[in-house]
């Protein structure tokens, strides 16, 4: 038995330090510790949670029926007759519509990104790990999709499939696959070239085991950071599609659609007309700021 350790560390409280050292501080714990001190990011995450909660419990949060219009009370300002944020062009309560609209806006913002993460992540890992032929096939395919600007691609797909929630999600998913394949491929091939993957290969492990044990946990951080930054783009794109009449159809509440409908009211009551736009701005901004905060906490360089 060889008993030579080279750990002569001078500490204040040996017992406490030993306890800490034995535990070991894993990556996610260090990320959390860094995040805990970052008040800006924490408050941004707080706002996002607030919006999520409001959307989830929309029937309880909303003060009025979002579909109930009123001929007399159209485009009224804040506080009119109990309508906190006023009413829209058909006299429906704007606050309630924004709360219900959050549901669709978040669904069209988050779901396509999640789907694209699963599909793009899988393709990216395959391309990055196996290189050679699979890489060529996947990456050239992605290049073709990349040739179109993302908004045009989304418009073209919904234009082809027709409007509606499912098709919006489908179109946006296809739009987000290429960037996610590319980032996953880049990160995977970076990780793959590190010595610990060579070491794992030289212990006789099969590719699937190596990907599970050594690739996924190392690529997750950077890919996650990038993914959260895509959510804000997705929200804006979905709103844009609805605005153009290619996304969610009336009378459903969705921020982009609401913005379109209120467009003509810009001369009557500009504050009310801008409200859905403000919500789109705040939400996508928050996702963007959260992404930046996570990037710092995870110490990721993209």
């Amino acid at each position: 038995m060889v008993s030579k350790t080279d750990n002569t560390v001078i500490v204040v409280d040996p017992a406490e330090a030993l306890r800490r050292a034995r535990q070991g501080r894993g990556y996610w714990r260090r990320v959390w510790e860094r995040l805990r001190g970052d008040w800006g990011t924490l408050s941004v995450i707080g706002i996002i949670l607030l919006i999520l909660l409001a959307a989830a419990f929309a029937p309880f949060v909303a003060t009025h029926d979002p579909m109930q219009g009123s001929i007399l009370g159209r485009l009224k300002g804040f506080g009119y007759n109990g309508h906190i944020l006023g009413t829209d062009e058909t006299g429906r309560d704007l606050f309630s519509r924004i709360v219900f609209g959050a549901r669709l806006s978040l669904i069209t913002g988050v779901l396509p990104v999640l789907f694209a993460l699963v599909i793009g992540g899988f393709l990216g890992v395959v391309a990055g790990y196996f290189r050679g032929f699979p890489n060529s096939v996947i990456m050239r395919g992605v290049d073709v999709l990349y040739a179109f600007p993302s908004i045009l691609l989304a418009i073209a797909i919904t234009g082809m499939l027709g409007s509606g929630l499912t098709n919006t999600i489908l179109a946006l998913t296809i739009t987000f696959i290429p960037p996610l394949v590319r980032i996953s491929e880049t990160v995977t091939s970076q990780v793959r070239s590190l010595d610990f993957v060579e070491a794992a290969r030289s212990s006789g492990a099969r590719p699937l085991t190596i990907i599970r044990f050594h690739i996924l946990n190392n690529m997750l951080g950077p890919v996650l950071v990038y993914t959260t930054s895509l959510i804000s783009i997705s929200i804006i794109l979905a709103a844009g599609l609805s605005f153009l009449g290619l996304g969610v159809t009336p009378p459903d509440a969705e921020w982009g659609l609401m913005l379109n409908n209120l467009r003509s009211a810009i001369w009557v009551n500009p504050v009310i007309a801008a409200l859905p736009g403000v919500m789109i701005f705040i939400t996508s901004m928050c996702f963007n700021l959260m992404s930046d905060g996570l990037r710092q906490a995870m110490d990721v360089r993209l």
Partner: peptide, 20 residues
């Protein structure tokens, strides 16, 4: 030489090689 160099964040007020 056994051991490792001292932690430069917590240098003792002593000969820094003494522990080794």
């Amino acid at each position: 030489i056994p051991g490792a160099p001292p932690d430069l964040m917590a240098l003792p007020d002593a000969c820094s090689f003494a522990p080794r």
